[in-house]
């Protein structure tokens, strides 16, 4: 028991509000307001942050997998697949559509169980799965087409009172995921899978169930992300989700989580999603060419990791 607490202690130390990401986001928002005052108005934020919600849920999906000290290289294509299914079937056959999406979540759960039982590296399995997702998406939709039902589009363009919709979604997603992973009892168990699996097993929990639960949750967040994306682009495209694979990893890590040990920050992942999107926006407000966007996002990632390594050494 003593050793268990020694293992979990660093995880707890990293808990709470992720200071660095929140500070970074604050600076970015202030900078944006100075460069382009219109951007911080209600309507400005509504437009600029429009593509944040699918990114948030992509990041949360990745967070679930990273909780298990795994990594998911297939979440982007999975979101594309959800997008193609929704754009094809959601209007005409909603029941069938939800059935297929549920099957997608189940497939994710099965993938988790498979990785646990066969003790396979998650990178290989999820990368393999990514080709299946992409293949299925291309099968459903060889070229971009389809449409989103009106209610879904209306939902995505809803003008919420006081707070622009993307911020509202962010706040709700942060509260829910923070509660689930850090306060609910099963959430704590799931984090144990990433930090100390042998102890979890000794305590009588099934590792297979735990890992497949985390993966199924990742699948569920992936489905939510894909539906939100469908609402925004009101069509289906088998390639549209691809960038989410790496962006989601970046958002989670920028948000203060670690690749291993179940050290995660759900709020941080949501903040990270905002940061990844806003770097592009901020850059576009400066005279710097947008060709640099990827490099700047990469530099930001290195900067955050560097700062974190520094602060950990001093701690």
């Amino acid at each position: 028991m003593l050793r268990l607490s020694a293992r979990i202690a660093p995880a707890l130390r990293g808990a709470g509000l992720p200071f660095l990401p929140v500070l970074a986001l604050t600076i970015m928002v202030i900078g944006m307001g100075i460069m382009q005052p219109r951007a911080t108005s209600y309507i400005g934020l509504q437009l600029i942050l429009r593509f944040v919600p699918p990114m948030i849920f992509a990041a949360l999906a990745q967070l679930c997998v990273i909780t298990a000290s795994d990594i998911d290289f297939g979440i982007g294509p999975f979101i594309s697949l959800v997008n193609c299914i929704a754009a094809t079937l959601l209007s005409s056959h909603p029941a069938l559509c939800f059935l297929l999406l549920a099957a997608g979540v189940a497939a994710y759960g099965a993938m988790g169980a498979f990785i646990q039982i066969r003790r396979l590296p998650s990178i290989v399995v999820t990368l393999g799965a990514s080709f299946i997702w992409l293949g299925l998406a291309l099968l459903i939709m060889p070229t971009p087409a389809g449409s989103a039902p009106d209610w879904l589009v209306a939902l995505a363009h809803w003008r919420a009172p006081y707070l622009p919709l993307p911020i509202l979604v962010g706040v709700l997603a942060a509260i829910f995921s923070q509660w689930f992973f850090r306060m609910s009892s099963y959430g704590v168990v799931l984090r144990g899978l990433g930090s100390a699996p042998p102890f979890l097993r000794d305590a009588g929990w099934s590792l297979v169930v735990a890992r497949s639960a985390l993966y199924a949750l990742a699948g569920l967040f992936g489905v939510i992300s894909g539906l939100m994306l469908t609402a925004l682009i009101s069509s289906g495209d088998a390639n549209v989700g691809t960038p989410y694979t790496l962006l989601s990893v970046a958002a989670v890590i920028v948000g203060g989580s670690s690749f291993t040990g179940g050290v995660i920050s759900p709020i941080g992942a949501v903040v990270g999603a905002f940061i990844m999107l806003l770097t592009g926006v901020l850059l576009s407000f400066t005279p710097i060419s947008s060709d640099w966007q990827l490099s700047v996002q990469g530099l930001l990632l290195l900067l955050v990791l560097g700062l974190r390594a520094l602060s950990r050494r001093h701690a």
Partner: peptide, 23 residues
């Protein structure tokens, strides 16, 4: 101004939204 999206529909959409805000 020229903005280039790196072969990504999400990025191109986001950049268009920013251009709207920039007036």
């Amino acid at each position: 101004k020229i903005v280039n999206a790196d072969n990504s529909a999400i990025q191109q959409s986001s950049q268009i939204e920013s251009l709207i805000v920039e007036g």
